[in-house]
């Protein structure tokens, strides 16, 4: 398959993740949409790595996975802390920093 077909899939997945990030109000679903976007970018990285015949893109994917794992741990801990204070994980309920 050509590289552009992988890139098209990657772009569509990224857009779906963006729409979900904007539209959904459950904080964990918003978090999962971020994971969807990260995976779309990973797919583009691997497709470019094959296109250019180098492994550096795959190394970048490895580091993206590391950062995503760290982000998952800290993000879910923050969601638990917010839930403990607000009894809700709706993103619109955590607006106490709003002026």
């Amino acid at each position: 398959m050509s590289t552009s077909s992988y890139l098209t899939i990657s772009i569509i997945l990224f857009s779906i993740g963006t729409i979900g990030f904007v539209v959904r109000r459950n904080a964990i679903v918003v978090f999962m949409c971020v994971e969807l976007m990260l995976n779309a970018v990973n797919l583009a990285f691997v497709a470019f790595a094959r296109h250019h015949g180098s492994l550096e893109g795959e190394a970048a994917v490895f580091f993206v996975m590391v950062v995503a794992a760290a982000e998952a741990a800290v993000g879910l801990a923050i969601i638990i802390a917010v839930f403990r204070n607000h009894r809700s994980i709706e993103t619109s309920d955590a607006d106490h920093l709003r002026l």
Binding site: M1, S2, L7, S15, R50
Partner: peptide
């Protein structure tokens, strides 16, 4: 967001469609 997503998809597909139409090296 759907309108912007469709614009993004069309735009990026036009950019990448021609240049990466092969499977590379």
């Amino acid at each position: 967001s759907s309108v912007f997503a469709v614009m993004f998809i069309v735009h990026m597909s036009k950019i990448y469609g021609a240049e990466f139409s092969t499977s590379g090296v």
